[in-house]
Design a protein around this nucleic acid. Structure first.
Lengths: 250, 250
DNA sequence: GAGTGGTCTAGACCACGTC
DNA sequence: ACGTGGTCTAGACCACTCT
C-alpha cells in the first residue's frame, strides 16, 4: 500500500499553487508581455504566504522562462517568443501538439538484439547484453518528419509485443508501466547528416537530403543510462532551445 | 562614479562561495561521480551558514547539472556525461575550448545595411532600419567549422571599424564595450540544410553537403531583441544540450 | 526509527533602480 | 527617499528512503 497509485494524492505545495495562479494570469492575458507582476510583498498579502514562498513560485516561473526578475526594478512577464521555448523529455508529441500539429507514429520494427560495443559503452553494459530496439516513423499531420531508433534493456522476464507498442499512445508511458522506466533527464548531441537510400524512402525526401540528427541518452533518477535513441529529422523540422547566461560558477 | 568599473568590487554571496567550494571538490575528484555530498545539515556546520544558504548553493549546482538531489536519499555528483553538457550564451569560443580545441575566427565582411522585412520583424524594428552585419568563419584548430552571420542595430553615432572587429577577442565583448550590448538570454531554432556554392567554398565541403543551421535571437536584460544571428555548421560539429523533466506547472 | 531532502515561516538587512 | 528584488537567519514540520 503506502501510497495511492491513482487519483487524489497530496495537494501541491503552496508555492506551486501560487506559480499556477500566476501562470494562468499570464496565459489568459491578464498579464501582458513585459508587464510587471505585483511586487513580492504584494503577492505575499494576496496569497497569504510568506515572502520566501512567493520567491520560490517566482523562481519556478523564471526557470521555465515565463518571467524574468531584475534587481531593483521588478519581475516581468517574458515575451511570448521566449515563453514558447521549452524543451523537455518526450518532446515530440508534446512539441508537435504545442505547435498546433497532430503527432502520430508508425512502428517500423520491434526487435531484440545484443548490444554492439558502441551502444554497450553508452549504456554502460557489457557488449552483447540483450537489448530491445524500436524503430518508428514520426509524423506530423500525416507527413513523415522524423525517424526514431531506440535501444534499451528490459528487466529479465519482461518482453514487449509489437501489438502493445502499436497500441500505446507513448512508448515512454508503456515502458514506464511495463518496465519501471523512469526518465528524469537526458543529454543530446545534434548535428547534420545526409539521408541514405532507406532514410530517404521512409521520410519521403531525396537521397542525400540534409537531416537533423539528434542522439539522445536518457537517464534514470539515479542517473544511470537507460536508453539510447537516434533521431533523424527532415529539414523542415525545428528544434527549439532557450539558453541563458551562465551566471558562471567559477 | 557609483561603482568601480574594474577589479575588486563586492565579494560574492555566501551561497556562491559554498557552491564554488563544492564545485572545486567535484572538479578535482575529491567527490566522484554519483558519490553523495555531505548532507545539508553537515554542510551547515562545515561552512557555518544557515541551511537555507546551503540549499541555495546546492540548487545552483543542480541547475547547472553538476549535482542532483533525491528526496529522502541525498544529493549526488552528476556523472561526467551530464556535467559536461552545458550551453550558454557566446558558446562557440567557450564550447570549443572546453572540448580541447583552439577557437579562432576570420572576419569575412563588415557592412551596414538596412533591415529587410524579415529581420526587422524579428528585431522589432521598422523595415529599413540601419543594421550592422558581420559575417565570420569560425575555426577549430585552424579548420573551418561554421559560418556566423550576425545582424544588430547600433546606437546612433556608434560605428564599428573592421580593424577593431578583427582585433577583438570576442564580438560580444566588443559590442558590450562600444554599444552597451548586454545579452542575458537567447532563443535558438535548429534545423538541417544543404550547403550552397559559397558556403561550401568557405567551409571546405562539397556543395550540397549537410549543414546544421542555428538561428539565434539574442535578448537584452529587458528582453528586447538586440541581435539576429544565423549560424551554419559542418556535419562534424556537435551541438550539446541537457534536457530535464518539465516538473510541469500545469 | 533515523537520516535525508522539501516546504514554510517571520523577520532582518543589503544592493539596485528610479524619481 | 522609496520601492524593488537579493541574501541570510533560526527555527519548525513534512515526505521520503533505507534498514
Amino acid at each position: 500500500m503506502s501510497k495511492r497509485p491513482t487519483e487524489a494524492s497530496a495537494p501541491p505545495p503552496r508555492y506551486r499553487q501560487v506559480a499556477d495562479a500566476l501562470r494562468a494570469a499570464i496565459d489568459d492575458g491578464r498579464l501582458a508581455d513585459n508587464e510587471a507582476l505585483p511586487s513580492e510583498r504584494e503577492l505575499t498579502e494576496q496569497h497569504q504566504v510568506s515572502r520566501d514562498t512567493i520567491r520560490k513560485a517566482v523562481r519556478l516561473l523564471e526557470d521555465h522562462g515565463l518571467v524574468y526578475s531584475d534587481h531593483g526594478r521588478g519581475t516581468f512577464v517574458a515575451p511570448a517568443l521566449v515563453r514558447r521555448m521549452s524543451r523537455y523529455i518526450d518532446g515530440f508529441s508534446e512539441d508537435t501538439r504545442q505547435r498546433g500539429g497532430l503527432p502520430t507514429q508508425r512502428i517500423l520494427n520491434l526487435e531484440f538484439s545484443p548490444a554492439t560495443m558502441a551502444i554497450a559503452q553508452l549504456l554502460q553494459l557489457e557488449s552483447g547484453h540483450p537489448l530491445t530496439r524500436v524503430r518508428r516513423v514520426r509524423l506530423t499531420n500525416g507527413v513523415p518528419v522524423g525517424l526514431h531508433d531506440a535501444y534499451f534493456p528490459l528487466p529479465p522476464g519482461v518482453k514487449l509485443e509489437l501489438q502493445e507498442v502499436e497500441r500505446a499512445r507513448s512508448l515512454y508511458q508503456l515502458l514506464m508501466e511495463r518496465a519501471g522506466f523512469a526518465p528524469v533527464e537526458a543529454v543530446e548531441n545534434l548535428f547534420a547528416a545526409s539521408a541514405d537510400a532507406e532514410e530517404a524512402r521512409l521520410l519521403g525526401v531525396p537521397e542525400g537530403a540534409p537531416l537533423l540528427v539528434c542522439e539522445r541518452i536518457t537517464l534514470s533518477d539515479r542517473r544511470e543510462p537507460i536508453e539510447y535513441c537516434l533521431m533523424k529529422y527532415v529539414s523542415s523540422y525545428r528544434y527549439s532551445a532557450r539558453i541563458t547566461q551562465s551566471s558562471r560558477l567559477a
